[in-house]
Structure formats: C-alpha cells, structure tokens
C-alpha cells in the first residue's frame, strides 16, 4: 500500500478530519443502507446499526488523525467490511445463541481487506492502550494529561511549579512505565508486529 494513487474517496477521510457535515451526510446516504441491510439480516436492528456506523467512523477518524490514513481503494468496500466485522465481534461478545450469519456475496478487493485489517489492528491497539493507561498511577496520569493537553512543556512546568527538566524527566518515566506495562501484555505481542 502507499505506492498506488490516492483514491477519490479520500474525500471521506478528509471529511472526518475536517468534520465536514455535507460530505459526512453523503457517507450515510451512500454507504449506510448496505450496512443496515446486513446487520438487520444478522440479528440486529437500526439502533445497533447506528452505533456500529458511528464507532466505525470514529475509528477511521482516529487512524487518519494519528496514522495519516490515505486510501488507495474505494471507501465503500473498506467501510462495509469494517462495519461487518465490528458487528460480528459484537455478536460474539454477547455470545448470542442461534445466530445465523447470512453472508452476502460481496466482491472485496485484496486492497480493501488489507485496509480493513490495518484499521482493525489499530483499533485493537487503541483498546489495549486505553486499558493500560487506566492502570497507571494517578500522578503519572495527571502529568501526562497536562503535557499532552497543554502541548508546551514550559507552560506545564510553570503550571506545576517545577523546572522544565524535571517535567520532561517525569514524563519520560511515565511513558517508560506504560511501555513496560504494555510489553508484558500477551495481546500486545500479538499485534505489535502488525502496527
């Protein structure tokens, strides 16, 4: 990926980054009906579909923001695949009985599948990191929140009444701690090479 030409559907990724209502509406009008159809056929309803679509779009946004996601394939198949897998995971999680998966025959190019895989791994990483961050001590959490929200380390230092050097050292220790914590997680070892 990345060697191909940027697809015209990159406009949907940009719309998420810019919070462009007009184009976001187009996403719903063009791509939501297919997802509604699939989820309804597979033990879901419109309200569940709404949640699945919202979560999927938020994940795509997060990936685009952090990892500079650039599409070289159509949005349609990539988006549908993501919603579909998210829904199947949801069903598995709830351990629903008697669920028959009515598979639709959709021809999905390898590229869409590869994009979808990357987004799924990105999401798994986010979930894991969020869990681990919550386990961090209060002092570290607050310091990290301050340094990443305020951006300027000088401002953080003066706000905390500490020296710049002290804050940077503390920050590095806190991230160091997170690094150790996540490295000891079996889940991380499964996904780290895919990141």
């Amino acid at each position: 990926m990345g060697n191909n030409k940027v697809h015209a559907d990159q406009k949907y990724i940009e719309a998420l980054l810019k919070n462009d209502t007009l184009v976001l509406k187009e996403i719903y009008e063009k791509f939501a009906p297919k997802v509604v159809g699939y989820i309804k056929k597979n033990s879901g309803d419109e309200s569940k579909t709404q949640d699945i679509i919202q979560e999927t779009l938020m994940t795509i946004y997060a990936q685009a923001k952090e990892k500079k996601l650039v599409l070289t394939c159509p949005f349609d198949a990539y988006f549908f695949l993501l919603c579909k897998r998210k829904w199947l995971n949801e069903l598995k999680k709830n351990n629903k009985q008697k669920v028959t998966i009515n598979e639709e025959i959709v021809s999905i190019g390898d590229e869409s599948e590869q994009y979808a895989n990357e987004t799924m791994i990105f999401e798994a990483r986010n979930e894991l990191f969020s869990e681990i961050f919550e386990q961090l001590g209060k002092a570290c959490k607050e310091l990290l929140k301050a340094t990443f929200t305020i951006k300027s380390m000088e401002d953080v230092a003066s706000k905390l009444g500490k020296s710049y050097g002290y804050v940077r050292k503390k920050k590095s220790l806190c991230i160091g701690q997170l690094t150790k914590m996540v490295q000891s997680s079996p889940k991380y070892n499964q996904i780290k090479n895919l990141l």
């Binding site: 919070n19 997060a62 929200t149 997170l178």
Partner: peptide, 29 residues
C-alpha cells in the same frame, strides 16, 4: 513501543474537544 505510546497519547489526550465535536455531529447526521 515508547514512540507508539507517544503517538497514542498525543492523539487521545489532546484531541478530546475535536473528537467530541465530530462524534456529536455524526450523531446528529
């Protein structure tokens, strides 16, 4: 891994407002 954390934290701790605005708009649409 340290870089990965740095990237994660800067996206997740610093973008609360932007994220909330997008989530809100998506919900309305």
């Amino acid at each position: 891994t340290y870089q990965e954390w740095n990237s994660y934290l800067s996206s997740n701790l610093g973008l609360d407002t932007e994220k909330a605005q997008l989530a809100n708009n998506l919900k309305n649409i």
